[in-house]
């Protein structure tokens, strides 16, 4: 378990760095997908099956594929090196440094949280979430269908050509 945790963390950090440092936009997106997959692995280690599956479906499946499509449709797949002025670079370094300091200060203040509520072994599994969703949270679950139908109507209105 500990070995898996360190391996996934290493993959995540390396991919995240590559997202920032690689020059080709398509590579950036693919590294980001890898990063998200490693994060899904972390969720599984934390016993959150459902979250891991949803994370893969929504982020890697839907959002990142959408990203790829946009990049390819807009023909952005050439490596572009932007020349920034010195002022921009210096101010970017200063801003980043300040943010780093804030994070460092925040981590110094952290303390261990002790679980307030008992941890059930079926917590985070699909069956448990299904039971809660169709029992306690039935009304919000059903009501979200109105949200989806209006979103679909909107997609149709904006997407269709006026004949």
């Amino acid at each position: 378990m500990v070995f898996l945790f360190y391996m996934l963390s290493a993959i995540m950090i390396i991919c995240a760095l590559l997202v920032v440092f690689s020059k080709n936009p398509i590579n950036n997106v693919i590294y980001l997908i890898l990063c998200f997959l490693a994060m899904a692995g972390h969720y599984i280690l934390l016993n959150a099956q459902f979250l891991a599956v949803v994370h893969v479906i929504v982020y890697t499946g839907a959002i990142m594929v959408l990203f790829l499509f946009v990049i390819m449709l807009l023909n952005l797949n050439k490596a572009i090196i932007l020349r920034k002025s010195t002022v921009t670079r210096v101010s970017a370094v200063i801003t980043g440094g300040i943010f780093f300091l804030v994070l460092l200060a925040a981590t110094r203040q952290t303390f261990e949280i002790h679980a307030k509520y008992p941890f059930a072994s079926d917590f985070g599994l699909v069956s448990g979430i299904g039971k809660v969703l169709f029992n306690e949270f039935l009304l919000p679950f059903e009501m979200s269908s109105i949200l989806f139908i209006s979103a679909m109507v909107g997609a149709m209105m904006f997407g269709k050509k006026d004949v």
């Binding site: 009501m143 109105i146 949200l147 209006s150 979103a151 109507v153 909107g154 209105m157 904006f158």
Partner: peptide
Amino acid sequence: EILSIPLYI
């Protein structure tokens, strides 16, 4: 959200 999304459209 149900109020807002139809309004965006």
